[in-house]
Design a protein around this nucleic acid. Structure first.
Lengths: 194, 194
DNA sequence: CCTTGCCTTTGACCTATATCAAAAAATCAT
DNA sequence: ATGATTTTTTGATATAGGTCAAAGGCAAGG
């Protein structure tokens, strides 16, 4: 439990990038999150189901992917200090195409959608946190769109390494290729040439 | 002025897709927006400046673009019933790379960033509106990313026509090409072959 | 109207990356 | 460990779409 306290440091600091955390809100957050560990390769969320939890990664990597023509296509990766869920499924309480799995052993905090709704309804600063943090993610998406439109495979990979600077070396080549929308073979050649 | 009242119908209905608009909030919104018209080709926002207004398009089309190697690259288009601004510039009050211009004669409501901040601070439902409407935009961005990664030039164009169903025919070919990340020549050939 | 300039189309050629196939290397389970 | 499976690398070939160049169309301003 002392370990848990230590871990929530990082969790709280994440919120404090955007809003001030009152003690009451801190308590409410603590009361509502649970801690879980995921084995390498473990399925965190199944596309057939409604995603009712959002996961805050303490340590490790999650991958969101979907299946296209029988192949897994990586949508994005999340390392420590980030929230992961299947966005549309989580927000609209419907099913969606995305699976989530753990690329390596991962420790995460889990927050149920109902608890999040409760927090939104009782802590206006949570709405603000949400609005502001979405702004950050927006920026990443826009950048990715630009990177996809006008760059060669090599530049895409370089951009990827920058974006995922702290975790890119831990992600298998094949997964990176589908994320970038290039083939494994091309990516392998790019890597070997430098 | 009776004309303006008629136009705000559409404006209010946009909010009501996400939240309930109290009469007080309606009044505040009305008090704070101004109406402007833009000529075809007119610059709405200049990259060198801080974007202090957000524009709600009543009629017409705005384009957001940036300059790369001396060429205008279209980032996205907005038709009636949508908000347009230079996101990072508007939110963080810094300069950014994006220009905005009017592709055709456009009528728009303008909301100053200070007024928006006032609304956020005094109407918690505005934070909620913001969070929820951003969710919609998120969906579009994700779709666009997928479309960029795995589709041929032809499919990209078809996806574009679906996404911009109501306005795609009013946008010049060259602008569409840079939006899609393909050359004008390729797009011209795609169009002619069907 | 006729310019002037811009936007779009057409043609010839070239290059980056996909595809297909198979070997080599790494990882996993017994 | 050892064999089995998965992942990555390497090679040969094909192709979608880019580049360069020039001609045709169309629209705005005198």
């Amino acid at each position: 439990m002392s370990e848990l306290t230590q871990q929530t440091e990082k969790f709280f600091r994440h919120f404090e990038k955007y809003i001030n955390l009152s003690d009451t809100l801190k308590d409410e957050l603590l009361k509502r999150i649970s801690f879980r560990t995921f084995k390498k390769g473990e399925l965190v969320h199944d596309a057939g189901k409604i995603c009712r939890y959002s996961y805050f990664i303490e340590k490790g990597i999650f991958r969101t992917y979907f299946i296209k023509d029988g192949k897994e296509i990586s949508e994005y990766f999340c390392g420590e200090g980030e929230w992961v869920n299947s966005p549309r499924s989580f927000i609209q309480r419907t099913t969606d195409i995305y699976y989530i799995d753990a690329i390596e052993h991962t420790d995460a905090f889990c927050l149920h959608v109902n608890d999040l709704v409760y927090l939104f309804e009782n802590f206006p600063e949570m709405e603000r946190y949400s609005r502001l943090s979405m702004g950050t993610i927006f920026g990443h998406l826009i950048e990715r769109i630009t990177s996809l439109r006008f760059t060669s495979a090599k530049e895409k990979y370089e951009h990827f390494c920058l974006t995922y600077n702290d975790i890119y070396s831990r992600i298998p080549l094949g997964m990176i290729a589908t994320y970038l929308g290039i083939t494994q073979e091309t990516l392998s050649r790019i890597r070997s040439e430098k």
